[in-house]
Measured scan of single mutants.
Amino acid sequence: IRCIGVSNRDFVEGMSGGTWVDVVLEHGGCVTVMAQDKPTVDIELVTTTVSNMAEVRSYCYEASISDMASDSRCPTQGEAYLDKQSDTQYVCKRTLVDRGWGNGCGLFGKGSLVTCAKFTCSKKMTGKSIQPENLEYRIMLSVHGSQHSGMIVNDTGYETDENRAKVEVTPNSPRAEATLGGFGSLGLDCEPRTGLDFSDLYYLTMNNKHWLVHKEWFHDIPLPWHAGADTGTPHWNNKEALVEFKDAHAKRQTVVVLGSQEGAVHTALAGALEAEMDGAKGKLFSGHLKCRLKMDKLRLKGVSYSLCTAAFTFTKVPAETLHGTVTVEVQYAGTDGPCKIPVQMAVDMQTLTPVGRLITANPVITESTENSKMMLELDPPFGDSYIVIGVGDKKITHHWHRSGSTIGKAFEATVRGAKRMAVLGDTAWDFGSVGGVFNSLGKGIHQIFGAAFKSLFGGMSWFSQILIGTLLVWLGLNTKNGSISLTCLALGGVMIFLSTAVSA
Rank of each mutant, 00 (worst) to 15 (best):
L113I: 14
G390A: 05
M15K: 05
I484N: 04
K38L: 04
E240D: 09
V243M: 11
I4H: 06
L358I: 05
A264H: 09
L269Q: 10
V24S: 02
F438C: 12
C339T: 05
G442N: 11
E44D: 11
W217K: 08
A501C: 13
S405R: 04
H144F: 10
L141V: 06
P171G: 14
S129L: 15
T160Y: 02
L424Y: 05
V303Q: 04
G436F: 07
N134Y: 11
V6E: 06
V391G: 14
R94A: 14
S64L: 14
G469L: 00
Q77F: 06
V12F: 06
L300N: 04
A413S: 14
G150I: 04
L25N: 08
G493K: 12
Q447N: 10
L358F: 11
Q447V: 14
M125S: 01
L300W: 11
A319P: 05
K283N: 14
G182F: 12
W474A: 02
Y59H: 09
T309G: 11
A346E: 00
L456Y: 11
V33K: 04
L489N: 04
K124V: 11
V33R: 01
I43L: 15
F382K: 07
A410Y: 11
I139C: 05
A270N: 13
W236N: 06
Y332M: 09
L188N: 07
G436C: 00
I496M: 07
K38G: 01
G442W: 10
T427R: 15
K419Q: 14
H235V: 14
D67G: 10
G181L: 08
D247P: 06
S260M: 11
D22V: 03
K409N: 00
V12Y: 07
L352T: 12
W462A: 07
P381L: 12
G458I: 06
P222V: 11
M34C: 09
E162T: 06
T309D: 10
Y386C: 14
L204M: 06
A413Y: 11
H446A: 08
K93P: 00
E240H: 14
E412D: 06
I468P: 10
R292I: 02
V114K: 03
R9K: 11
T414Y: 10
T254H: 10
T267I: 12
E329T: 14
G432F: 05
E159P: 04
A501S: 15
T47Q: 02
M374P: 00
W217I: 08
V143K: 05
Q447L: 04
P342N: 09
I130Q: 07
N103H: 06
W400F: 12
A35F: 07
I43M: 15
G287I: 04
T353E: 00
S129C: 09
R193E: 04
E274I: 06
K123N: 05
S51V: 06
P224G: 05
F431A: 03
S86K: 04
S403F: 15
V388R: 00
I139N: 02
K419D: 09
K395H: 07
L471R: 07
R164L: 08
T309E: 02
A270L: 13
N481K: 13
T470V: 15
G187Y: 14
A227I: 03
V167E: 04
I65L: 15
T500Y: 13
T48G: 03
N439C: 14
G337F: 13
A361V: 09
T40L: 01
K251V: 03
T353V: 12
T126L: 12
A250G: 01
C60G: 04
E62C: 13
S403R: 06
N207H: 14
S129R: 02
G104Q: 07
G337A: 15
N208W: 02
Y332N: 12
S66H: 08
H226I: 15
L289H: 05
L441A: 03
D83W: 02
G356P: 03
R138M: 05
N478P: 05
C60A: 02
A250F: 08
M68T: 15
A176M: 10
L201G: 00
G476I: 04
D348P: 00
V347R: 08
I387G: 02
G127I: 03
K251M: 02
A270S: 09
A250V: 11
S368P: 14
K239I: 12
W462Q: 10
E329Y: 12
T351H: 00
L242A: 02
H288G: 13
C116S: 07
V169M: 12
K301G: 00
G195N: 07
G263E: 12
A272K: 11
I387T: 10
K454H: 10
A501N: 10
R420F: 09
T205C: 04
E177P: 05
N134T: 05
K297Y: 09
S455L: 14
G444Y: 07
G157S: 14
V391M: 14
G450M: 13
L113N: 02
T414G: 01
H288E: 07
R416C: 04
G458D: 11
S503R: 01
G383L: 01
E159D: 15
H399T: 02
G181D: 08
T325M: 10
M375C: 03
R402D: 08
K166T: 14
F218W: 09
F312Q: 08
H323Q: 13
T315Q: 02
S499N: 09
T487F: 05
M374C: 13
A272M: 13
L25S: 09
A80Q: 09
L186Y: 03
F11P: 01
D22R: 01
S306V: 14
G127Y: 05
V388P: 00
D393M: 14
F438W: 03
G14A: 10
K454W: 13
D42T: 02
G334A: 01
K239S: 01
P174T: 07
G436M: 10
A227G: 12
N371V: 00
P318T: 02
W236P: 02
N8R: 00
M295N: 11
N481H: 12
A248G: 13
L113Y: 02
F449Y: 11
L82D: 08
S142L: 05
T369G: 13
G18D: 01
S173C: 06
S306A: 15
K294A: 05
M349F: 12
L467H: 11
S185G: 09
Q89I: 03
W225Q: 09
L307S: 14
W217E: 07
M460A: 05
Q77H: 07
A270W: 13
K394T: 12
S185N: 14
V33E: 07
G469T: 11
N154G: 04
L467A: 12
Y386H: 12
L204R: 07
T179M: 05
D247I: 03
C291F: 03
N134R: 04
Q465R: 14
L204E: 09
S142H: 02
D42H: 04
R9G: 13
E79T: 11
D278A: 14
L96D: 07
L96Y: 13
R138P: 00
A241G: 01
P75C: 08
V391H: 14
Y90Q: 09
S405F: 09
C92Q: 11
V391D: 05
P354A: 14
G145P: 03
L477G: 02
T366V: 07
C30Y: 12
M125D: 07
T309I: 13
L180Y: 09
L82F: 11
N208S: 15
V143N: 08
T487Y: 10
R164T: 11
G476D: 10
N163I: 03
K84R: 15
D161S: 13
P39A: 01
T335V: 12
H266S: 13
R416F: 07
T170H: 07
H323A: 04
D393R: 00
T49N: 03
K123Y: 02
N172P: 00
G334R: 07
